[in-house]
Nucleic acid binder design. Sequence first.
DNA 1: TGCGTGATATTCT
DNA 2: GAATATCACGCAG
Length: 208
Amino acid sequence: MAHHEASPVPTASLRRPAERVARELLGATLVRRLDGEILSLRIVETEAYVGPEDRACHAFAGRRTARTEVMFLAGGHAYVYFVYGMHHCLNVVTGPAERGEAVLIRAGEPLEGAETMRRLRGLLDRAPRPGEIAGGPARLCQALAIDRTLDGVPFGTGELVLIRGRSIEERDVVRSPRVGVDYAGEAAAWALRFSVKGNLHVSRPRPG
DNA sequence: TGCGTGATATTCT
DNA sequence: GAATATCACGCAG
């Protein structure tokens, strides 16, 4: 048993700007409670979607639809969307209510419940390589059984919890452009992808 | 390197 | 309403 109590990421800290939250969530632990079992992973890669002025953000220009509605809740809620006909992606809503910004959780390093995550990923028959379980936003959701039923749930009170981790040193943080947002004009070049330098669980394409 | 796959947003009638 | 374009991806090959 660890000496220090596991302390949740304070909700107030999630109500700050997405760029800052994305940086600070590196090294934090994402906990998923699934049928009483605890699955957890250490967050090693995130992306900030900074709000109305960000063309890559689903809530660009304040666009408010059935899908994006939870992005306008106050920071600290989960925003889960479905894309490409088969994939889910998990975001942490950030900022104050009505802003429409979020942080995409892109990759994690399995901690507790790795066996169950392997099963959920269909990788029980062989030894997965680093990053194969949760290296990528859709893989991470599959490994943690996250889908739209979790859209809008608050972090910290049930199925999803964020736990503070040892903070990542500045020299170990890599900033690079976000993945798959070439359509977003000048925003495509903004360095809002954060990852832990050299970590093998970070998704492709590798930053840098 | 292609492409599945279906929800979503946008643009028509 | 309906047609169409697009997509914050992953895997096969």
